[in-house]
C-alpha cells in the first residue's frame, strides 16, 4: 500500500512558548485506508487534523513533517506557502468538522457554495455545473436537491447541514477526507445516517479517511486502524479489533473498559426488525 499521508514527528507549539500541544506524533495512512484518531478533550487530535490541513493559525506553529501524495508529486504541508496549500486542499484533502456552520457561508445559497469548488477544481460551467451541484446534493442523500440548493444554511436542519458540508468536502473529488467529530453535535438517529453516508462515500470513491472522535464505538464502527492520543502524544496505535480486544497501554485499557461498561448496559443482541 502506498502512503497517501505520512505524518512524521509532528509537534505543534504556541509560538515561542512552553510545552508542545501536539508532541512527536507520527502515523501513516495508505490509499483507501480508514484511520480513526481517538482522544478526549485536550488530547491534540483536532490540532493534528488542522496541521494536516495546513490550517493552524498564528500563534500555533507546526514542526516535523506532513507529506501528502498529491497528483503533481508529494507536498510537504509543514512550512508550505498558502498558494501551494490551495492546490492541495479540496482536490487532495477535504474536511468536515463538528460544526458545519464553520465551513459554510450563512449569506450564500447552498447551491452557490457548492458550485464554487466544482467550477474551480473541475472546470464545470453553465448547465453542466448546475447538474453537478444537484448531483452532489443527491449524492449525500439529500431529498429535494433543488430546494436545498436554493436554501440558505439556516433554512435546513442540523443533519442536512452536515450533509451539505460533506458534499462540499467531496466536491473537488479529494483522495483523503478528514472528518473531525462530524457527528458529535447530531441526534443519535441522525448520526447513524451521517456515519453511513461517510462510510459509503469513502468506499465508493476509494478514498482514504481520517476520522477523529472522542467516541470509541463510533470510531470502532468506521476505522480499520486506530491511533489513541492523550495530552498531545500518541499512546497506542493498531488494528481496531486488536486494540479493542487487547489494549496494551493503561490509558487505552481504561478507555476501552469505560466504553465497554457503557455498551454493556444496552441489550446485547441486535433487535429483530433490524435498522429502520
Amino acid at each position: 500500500m502506498t502512503a497517501l499521508l505520512t505524518v512524521n514527528a509532528l509537534s505543534v507549539h504556541v509560538d515561542g512558548a512552553g510545552a508542545p500541544l501536539v508532541d512527536d506524533v507520527s502515523f501513516e495512512l495508505g490509499e483507501g485506508e480508514r484511520l480513526g484518531v481517538i482522544g478526549e478533550s485536550g488530547s491534540g487530535k483536532s490540532l493534528t487534523a488542522l496541521a494536516v490541513l495546513g490550517l493552524l493559525a498564528h500563534p500555533l506553529r507546526a514542526s516535523g513533517s506532513i507529506r501528502l501524495a498529491a497528483d503533481g508529486g508529494d507536498v510537504e504541508v509543514v512550512g508550505a506557502r498558502q498558494r501551494r496549500l490551495d492546490t492541495v486542499r479540496g482536490s487532495t484533502v477535504g474536511a468536515v468538522f463538528q460544526e458545519p456552520l464553520a465551513s459554510l457561508d450563512p449569506l450564500m445559497r447552498i447551491g452557490a457554495q457548492l458550485a464554487w469548488p466544482l467550477r474551480q477544481h473541475r472546470g464545470l460551467r453553465g448547465d453542466a455545473l448546475r447538474r453537478a451541484v444537484l448531483d452532489a446534493l443527491a449524492d449525500v442523500q439529500l431529498a429535494e436537491p433543488e430546494r436545498i440548493a436554493r436554501s440558505f444554511i439556516h433554512e435546513v436542519s442540523g443533519g442536512q447541514r452536515q450533509r451539505v458540508a460533506i458534499a462540499l468536502a467531496l466536491a473537488a473529488r479529494p483522495r483523503l477526507l478528514i472528518a473531525d467529530e462530524p457527528t458529535t453535535a447530531l441526534d443519535v438517529t441522525v448520526q447513524a445516517g451521517v456515519l453511513e453516508l461517510i462510510q459509503s462515500a469513502v468506499a465508493e470513491r476509494g478514498m482514504s479517511l481520517v476520522f477523529i472522535s472522542h467516541d470509541l464505538p463510533v470510531v470502532a464502527g468506521i476505522a480499520d486502524r486506530v491511533v489513541v492520543m492523550r495530552a498531545g502524544r500518541v499512546v497506542e496505535a493498531g488494528e481496531t479489533r486488536q486494540l479493542l480486544s487487547a489494549p496494551r497501554e493503561g490509558y487505552t485499557r481504561t478507555l476501552v473498559a469505560a466504553s465497554r461498561a457503557l455498551d454493556d448496559l444496552l441489550p446485547a443482541a441486535p433487535l429483530d426488525g433490524g435498522r429502520v
Binding site: V188, A192, D215, L216, P217, L244, L271, V276
Partner: peptide, 21 residues
Amino acid sequence: VLTEPRHPYTRRLLDSVPRLP
C-alpha cells in the same frame, strides 16, 4: 422497554446507538 421496545421510534433510537463490535 430496552429489551422489548414496543414503539417503532424507541426501536429506531436503540438501533442508532453506535455499538462496540
